[in-house]
């Protein structure tokens, strides 16, 4: 799928200009991370991708079709959006009903819904909680319930708004698995996140926003190499990336193993390092 944003501007009814001329093309199956400080306009942008908000100026093309030509319910077939706060999204009295709501609206048949239910429930880790009330789920489970209810709709693009907050490592791993699965299925996954470690590990492409504009758009290596811009946008790269940069390793690194490799390369290249790289081998991230 391909989504084009052209000169997108959005002004909230009270007069706040949340988007100020965004030009962006999102396409292919490479997961994209949308980052930026609080209030940068990420959620506002995401809510445009299926027409929940309509641009004040500019336009959005989905596979070449202007988004203005149809309503949100129709775009729901193509773009799934998981709200930042699961309480904004969950309203039925069981996880099963939540999962079935979207596909029912889209007219999936009962068999297909049942099949997807099984897959998705396993993927989001709620297989044995299908008959529970969403209100009784833990905050993390609620988040996954909201994610599952959107995955059920089988859309070509999925937008996650801040799926990584208040989650432990198991949750992060599960999320990473979901993102990898979407990519494997050739779907476009756009994720808003403040967790730079998570972003660096899972998203080949990163878009940085500030004050309703796109500051940087490129591969994670390109974006996380731009210390000056990142600092200006109040975004801090992952700790390991910063350490590697500080000691002068080549290129941005995002994982411990990449760090170690880079350190070895630097050492064998007899560069002068201020760190004993043998020690880094024992470190687990």
């Amino acid at each position: 799928m391909k989504i084009d944003l052209e000169h997108l501007e959005y002004v909230y009814p009270h007069g706040h200009r949340a988007l100020d001329g965004v030009n962006l093309t999102l396409e292919g199956d490479q997961p994209v991370a949308l980052i930026g400080q609080n209030g940068a306009g990420k959620t506002t942008l995401a809510k445009h991708l299926n027409g929940i908000l309509r641009p004040t100026k500019g336009r959005i093309l989905i596979d070449g079709v202007d988004l203005a030509t149809a309503n949100t319910a129709q775009w729901a077939r193509k773009v799934g959006y998981v709200f930042q706060n699961p309480d904004d999204q969950l309203f039925l009295d069981s996880v099963r009903k939540e999962f079935a709501f979207g596909p029912r609206q889209l007219g999936f048949d009962q068999d297909l819904i049942a099949r997807r239910m099984e897959q998705v429930a396993g993927l989001v880790g709620l297989a044995d909680r299908l008959d529970d009330h969403p209100f009784d789920l833990s905050p993390t489970e609620k988040k996954f319930c909201a994610i599952g209810s959107v995955l059920m709709m089988d859309t070509g693009t999925v937008v996650f708004d801040e799926p990584t907050c208040g989650q432990d490592k198991a949750g992060d791993d599960r999320l990473a698995a979901i993102i990898a699965r979407l990519r494997g299925q050739g779907r476009l996954c756009i994720t808003i996140s403040h967790d730079m470690k998570f972003v660096a590990r899972n998203f080949p492409r990163v878009v940085l926003m500030q004050h309703g504009r796109v500051l940087l758009d490129g591969s994670r290596e390109e974006v996380f190499a731009r210390d000056d811009v990142l600092e200006q946008a109040y975004v801090t790269p992952p700790p390991i990336t910063r350490v590697a940069r500080q000691i002068g390793l080549d290129g941005p690194v995002f994982t411990v193993s990449a760090f170690v490799d880079a350190a070895w390369r630097a050492k064998s290249g007899s560069r002068n390092l201020s760190l004993d790289t043998t020690r880094a081998k024992g470190v687990k991230q």
Partner: peptide, 30 residues
């Protein structure tokens, strides 16, 4: 907000009165 999310999950705004009521009633609980 929840209505926004219902539309984002395919509920038609102009859908029949019955389907809209069916979608609205369960909102009241949560």
């Amino acid at each position: 907000v929840i209505e926004q999310s219902q539309h984002a999950r395919g509920l038609e705004t102009g859908g029949g009165l019955i389907s809209r009521t069916r979608a609205f009633l369960p909102l009241l609980g949560p």
